[in-house]
Simulated scan of single mutants.
Amino acid sequence: MLQLNQVSKFYNNHTAVEKLSFEVQSGQIFGLLGPNGAGKTTTIRMICGILHPDEGEIFFLNQHISSELQARIGYLPEERGLYKKMKVAEILLYFARLKGQEASVAKEKISYWLKRFDIQDWREKKIEELSKGMQQKVQFISVVLHEPDLLILDEPFSGLDPINSELILDAILELKAAGKTLLFSTHRMEQVEKICDNIVLIHNGKKVLGGKVLEVKAAYGKNTLQVDFEGNDSFIDELVLSGSVAVSERHPKSVELRLLGSTTLKTLLPFINERTELRRAELALPSLKDIFIMQVEGARHKPIS
């Protein structure tokens, strides 16, 4: 569906993207990950034809990316691109017509999606009258109306509460089930683990790692210990001070630890059990959040508490 081959983009003395290569297969959800300033948005804008690469090639549907192919891409930018004085139904029809969709077909789809997202009562309201969450839902609808082959979603859950996040997530999974291909850029690692098939992590414009989500996690081994307990949690600080573990996530009755050096579950369990009421201890693959931070910081064993 999409291929980037040694793509680079330069701004004066700054390299935004450097020799970036990856492939997105048809029908998958692909995660484009990286910290702020990593080059994700620049990469997306090159795919969409907003920017042009200074080096390398981009292929979409086995053709060089071109303006003729833009109608087959839907792009949800992180920054909202809605005209505030236009009404909801009006702006959605406008965007659908820009992509070449017949007005009668577009109006049917607009009614469907407004009802689906429970904002049909706002169809005659101006964009500026909507909350940020409602605006995000309208922008999402504008991207899917013309049924593009590739949907590019940059932080699609931005500004959404948990209920509306689930609405968008359900829609994304339905689009995938219908055979659509999605390129998904986000900082929310828990969403990536739920829905992405493959990922690429970029940092300072360069590819750091990539592949299938499970394979990426498996490459780090089962070095994550998930512990549920009742009582005193001071044992966590003792373990960190000893250099045995790093803390990934910490809560009043649970903690996720990354085992360091030669530390094993067998050596930790008696120590923990003597100091608190242990309810559960399970070795697991590291989370993408852990892997993300380890790679970006360049410090595999640095605590993440």
Rank of each mutant, 00 (worst) to 15 (best):
V88R: 07
Y75I: 07
S165A: 15
S67N: 11
E274F: 03
S21Q: 10
H14I: 14
N12P: 03
D233G: 14
G243P: 02
D161Y: 08
S248R: 06
K137E: 06
L2P: 01
R72A: 12
L76N: 07
V17H: 06
L98S: 02
I29H: 02
L201G: 03
D197T: 07
Q63W: 06
M46V: 00
L239V: 01
A16C: 10
F229N: 10
L92W: 07
L51N: 04
Q25V: 11
G100M: 06
E249C: 02
I110T: 01
L4W: 01
P162K: 04
A16W: 05
M46D: 00
Y112I: 08
R258M: 13
R275W: 02
W113C: 01
E282Y: 09
C48H: 00
K19S: 14
D121L: 13
A284H: 11
S242Y: 00
V24S: 08
V192K: 06
N13Q: 15
K137H: 08
L98H: 04
Q226H: 15
A171N: 03
S158K: 07
Y83P: 09
T224M: 14
E68W: 04
L145N: 03
D149E: 15
R72F: 13
Y220N: 06
E282I: 12
D154Y: 03
E78I: 08
W113H: 07
P286F: 13
T41Q: 03
T263N: 04
V105L: 13
L183C: 08
N36Q: 09
W122E: 08
R72W: 09
T42S: 00
K206H: 10
E57N: 13
M189F: 10
P252D: 06
L61G: 05
A106P: 00
C48D: 01
E18A: 14
A71L: 08
K40F: 04
F229D: 10
E102P: 06
A177R: 13
L288P: 11
E238R: 05
A177Q: 13
K125G: 10
H301T: 13
E230F: 12
K212Q: 14
L76W: 05
I73R: 02
G159Y: 04
